[in-house]
């Protein structure tokens, strides 16, 4: 019996995850308890993202409450005219217009951090580069041919992408004979800041980190609460476990 369990465990060992393909993502440190960062991120989101993208599952007052912004301040700084604090965060632009202007409707971003991951968002927003061939004049290494124009252009400035040529050698069997094929591929190497923006690269990274942090909050506003409650639940269950074990031991004294 023990041998079986042991061999099962051994069998599970090769099950280690392999890195998925796709662009290399920069890691961003998410800290949902950093209210100052969340508040800065909320301002960026409302001022720059919310004109086209909704965050329609979240309500302004809920956000204000969680981030420590009073209803009055929410109303003053974050609310569009005509909205109430209890409203959902809807984009200013109607969905149909977005479809007309960009070819695709700007997606709702409430759950983006859970769909793409925070590293993706952080890297994506720092990976726009000038591409005259593209419709909007911008392209992105994380999301090639993205329809979204680079809204934060003034902050970051203008990046140019530098590509390098990579040689790919592949071995294949053709008609029973081994054939070696050599092909080349353009691979992204690094960015050059061609025209600086109003922010230094460090400031810009910080701003995007704040925004990503806020989007992580937005994708699951209950996360901190859930972890806090979880600790109490586990403590309670541990206490109950002790009681249950004592009771079991007491009764099982009878069994010989």
């Amino acid at each position: 019996m023990k041998k079986i369990v042991l061999s099962l465990l051994l069998a599970l060992l090769p099950v280690v995850s392999h890195a998925d393909e796709g662009p290399k993502l920069d890691h961003v440190k998410i800290d949902l308890s950093d209210k100052a960062s969340l508040q800065r991120g909320a301002r960026i989101f409302v001022n720059y993202c919310l004109s086209c993208h909704s965050a329609s599952y979240l309500r302004y007052d809920r956000m204000g409450h969680d981030l420590g912004i009073s209803d009055e301040l929410v109303k003053q700084d974050l609310l569009f005219a005509g909205n109430k604090v209890g409203d959902r965060m809807q984009a200013v632009m109607p969905v149909a217009d977005g479809k007309k202007w960009f070819g695709v409707a700007p997606p709702d971003l409430t759950l983006e951090a859970r769909y793409r991951g925070t590293d993706w968002i952080y890297t994506y927003l720092r990976s726009f580069y000038r591409d005259p061939k593209s419709f909007s004049g911008w392209n992105n290494t994380v999301f090639p041919h993205v329809a979204m124009p680079f809204v934060l252009y003034e902050w970051q400035g203008e990046q140019h992408a530098v590509f390098r040529t990579k040689t790919i050698v592949s071995h294949e069997m053709k008609n029973g004979k081994p054939v070696t094929q050599v092909s080349t591929e353009q691979v992204f190497d690094h960015f050059v800041l061609a025209k600086p923006g109003t922010m230094t690269p460090k400031q810009y990274d910080q701003a995007i980190r704040d925004l990503t942090n806020f989007m992580a909050y937005m994708s699951e506003p209950t996360k901190l609460e859930r972890i806090r409650i979880g600790v109490y639940v586990l403590i309670f269950l541990a206490v109950f476990l002790v009681v249950a074990i004592l009771l079991k031991k007491e009764y099982w004294k009878d069994i010989h």
Binding site: F240, V243, A244, L246, L247, E250, Y251, K253, D254, I255, H256
Partner: peptide, 18 residues
């Protein structure tokens, strides 16, 4: 299964506690 020397009080207490 034998019930010799069972501390009924303790058993009742633990049951009530659980």
């Amino acid at each position: 299964m034998s019930e010799d020397g069972v501390d009924r009080g303790k058993r009742r207490f633990l049951t009530a506690l659980t």
